[in-house]
Design a binder for these strands. Structure first.
Lengths: 184, 184
DNA sequence: GAATTCGTAGTACGATCGTTCTAGAAAGTC
DNA sequence: GACTTTCTAGAACGATCGTACTACGAATTC
């Protein structure tokens, strides 16, 4: 009865490569053939592993969100205060090495806002994940305004940084924000 | 020598209709034929007024940025303090009636981050326009950190609001931010 | 009214799109 | 080795894409 077993590792490998490709070549114009060519496989292989193109987009965006969240939460989780967690998250996120990934993140975010039916899973978790992470660092004060503000500010500053590349101005603004968080 | 004069009003009319169409149907999958059908014209007419599809995208995003900036600056300009200007900008921007326009704004923003060569004009002005607006309200204190933070926070809060629709939580966070701005 | 330019539409071309079909090699169980 | 399922590739399909070409009414100058 059994036959060849499903190779989950292979799918994960292709998915990560697809995320890298999307970060480099953009998210809005993805199509089977160029991705397949870049990954050194046939389009049939991608179709076999991901189904339809829509399903592949959902898989890419899900993996991207997971990658960013896991890496950021490694740095932000376990911090003693909300301000410390915010500072840790910012310092990791604002590294120019992360820029392609975050440009892709905001491209996906924007697309999701205009196609909520397709990207419902992304929109559901894109704020909630971070809220629960930050509220762990927040301590007994359970006012959701503070973590909401931290998420919004970090993302807004990233949008500025990615658009202008002005690390000095944006970095100073971030520092002012964290300082205000601590003296409250 | 002269012939029929160029009808600039006609182009502006079509462009505004195209922006409305993009706000309703999404930015990433725009193509001549569906837009033309929705606007009740032929694709040839659109090509005639806008040139190539890339040029039409640039025109759409330019007009969108202009529309949002003009309308917001009507409310924010002339405010006595930075906090007042920020509050005015937020109160106008967060109105659910504006959501489709801002979803399009962030979709364009995300696409621009991944195609900076195409959307350089957008990226150049998307922060600079607001900086100059807010620094007028800022008064003698010319530290760019404060207006940078205002822009980032408002945009980050909008991202949250548009993704979650949670007006209470995001509204409270906005209020906390403005209160902090005033007592500084 | 002749000449010229603009606005609009219809048609057609080649390219690319997502997807399906067919087929064979690979990796398991019995 | 027989059997079954997965993985991969190639070819082909119909649809849609951006764009160029042709043509004609509208608006203006001379």
């Amino acid at each position: 009865m059994a036959g060849r077993p499903v190779d989950h590792r292979r799918r994960a490998e292709l998915l990560d490569a697809a995320v890298d490709y999307a970060a480099e070549h953009g998210f809005s114009d993805l199509s089977w053939r160029p991705i397949a060519a870049a990954l050194g496989v046939s389009t049939t292989t991608l179709v076999h592993h991901f189904g339809t193109k829509e399903q592949m987009l959902v898989a890419i965006l899900g993996r991207l969100r997971e990658r960013i969240f896991v890496l950021t939460s490694d740095r932000a989780a376990g911090q003693p205060t909300l301000a410390a967690a915010a500072r840790a998250a910012w310092e990791w996120s604002s590294d120019p090495q992360r820029w392609p990934e975050f440009k892709l993140f905001f491209a996906v975010y924007g697309s999701a806002l205009q196609a909520p039916h397709l990207f419902a899973g992304f929109l559901d978790r894109v704020v909630a994940d971070w809220m629960s992470l930050l509220r762990d660092a927040q301590g007994p004060d359970d006012d959701p305004a503070a973590p909401t503000l931290v998420i919004a500010t970090i993302r807004g500053l990233l949008l500025d940084l990615l658009a202008t590349g002005d690390r000095d101005r944006v970095g100073n603004a971030a520092e002012a924000f964290f300082a205000g968080l601590e003296h409250k």
